[in-house]
């Protein structure tokens, strides 16, 4: 899972040394908005700019950091409908169909998860964001056609309320 904020106590990978951890802690609230942000981070934790750049590049290359950049607020950008769409896919086809679903721009997450039979039969989950419900339904129809999912049982779970989006805890 990709997260913008790391829960308390989570930063414990043995592959990170003390200086990596200090750097992760220094950037997790965001990058400084100034012409030389990595020099500024270095200044805060007593590290040269070159070392900050070299360590961050390593963290990216080894996928501790998936990417640098912005995190958007879907709702404020006009994406007011979100649905979790779940599919009951034969286990032998999950990888193929997962990759097919994952190629669409409007699908922001696509995961295989365990079934919980008999109550829950679905094993492939994706998130679709749209401006309204009709747009989301249109997206579902499109992927059914494009990925040949006509015979695969699915359900669309629209969100009604978001209760909680946790702030930072360090």
């Amino acid at each position: 899972m990709n997260v913008a904020k790391l829960p308390q106590g989570m930063l414990q990978s043995a592959e990170l040394d003390g200086r990596d951890k200090a750097l992760v802690a220094a950037i997790q609230t965001g990058l400084p908005l100034c012409p030389h942000p990595y020099a500024e981070i270095g200044r805060r934790i007593g590290m040269e700019e070159a070392e900050v750049i070299q360590r961050l590049q390593r963290l990216l290359d080894d996928e501790f950091i998936k990417r640098m950049g912005v995190v958007v607020r879907h709702h404020e950008l006009g994406y007011r409908a979100n649905a979790m769409v779940v599919w009951d896919v034969p286990d032998s086809q999950v990888a193929e169909l997962g990759r097919c679903l994952g190629q669409f721009d409007f699908i922001t997450l696509c995961y295989q998860r365990p079934r919980r039979l008999p109550q829950w039969r679905y094993n492939l989950f994706c998130m679709i964001h749209g401006r309204d419900r009709d747009e989301v339904i249109g997206c579902v129809d499109l992927v059914i056609e494009q990925c040949a999912l006509q015979d695969i049982a699915h359900e669309v779970l629209f969100s009604r309320r978001r209760f909680k989006q946790r702030g930072a805890r360090y």
């Binding site: 899972m1 963290l59 996928e63 950091i65 995190v71 958007v72």
Partner: peptide, 21 residues
């Protein structure tokens, strides 16, 4: 608040954490 933040997105499991839905 049109952007929630500007900075790194972490791969949480690589960082040593656990998640579940």
């Amino acid at each position: 608040k049109q952007l929630t933040r500007f900075g790194p997105m972490y791969h949480a499991e690589r960082m040593g954490g656990a998640f579940s839905l």
